[in-house]
């Protein structure tokens, strides 16, 4: 076998090996995280989920400690009375259900996430947020992509 072909195989094997190592280490860390979720119930995300499910008192939730923006959450806004509360907005905080608020208006951008040129992962951390999303959005795009946001996002209502 000539040297050129051997080098090509070597590069290919190197890529496969390094990729396998990276994936194995990532899978292991995911497994550890999954295990930890079973015992650690008071993470900010769990607290948000508990709030949404109305279990705040059962879990001694301290709203001030929530690692989410706009923590002046109004627990009386469980029922949507024409607008969308920060509380409700915060419940749509995942890749499969992503609402954001921009300039006082709430949009469902779940279907846009896979189309985001900068990858869905760049937006997902801001799902369910208002000011955090606005800051990140403006920091990245200024006002150049606002019209696209309005076009791609499904209008859900005003933020109250």
């Amino acid at each position: 076998m000539n040297k050129k072909l051997m080098l090509a195989f070597l590069i290919f094997a190197l890529v496969i090996g390094i990729s396998a190592l990276i994936r194995l280490s990532d899978d292991n860390s995911e497994e550890i995280e999954t295990r930890n979720e079973g015992t650690y119930q008071s993470s900010p995300q769990n607290q948000i989920n508990n709030l949404v499910q109305g279990n705040a008192n059962q879990d001694n939730v301290n709203i001030e400690n929530l690692n989410q923006p706009n923590t002046n959450i109004d627990n009386t806004n469980q029922v949507n009375t024409g607008g969308i509360s920060l509380y409700e907005l915060a419940s749509h905080n995942s890749r499969n259900d992503c609402w954001i608020a921009y300039d006082g208006t709430v949009y469902d951008i779940t279907s846009f996430l896979p189309k985001h040129p900068g990858s869905a992962g760049a937006i997902v951390p801001y799902c369910g947020t208002s000011s955090d999303f606005e800051n990140a959005f403006s920091g990245q795009h200024g006002t150049s992509q606002v019209s696209r946001l309005f076009r791609e996002g499904e209008l859900m209502g005003d933020l109250i």
């Binding site: 990729s19 990276i22 994936r23 990532d26 996430l113 990858s119 869905a120 992962g121 760049a122």
Partner: peptide, 9 residues
Amino acid sequence: ITSPENWAG
């Protein structure tokens, strides 16, 4: 390789 879930979409 490091974050395949971000690219699955």
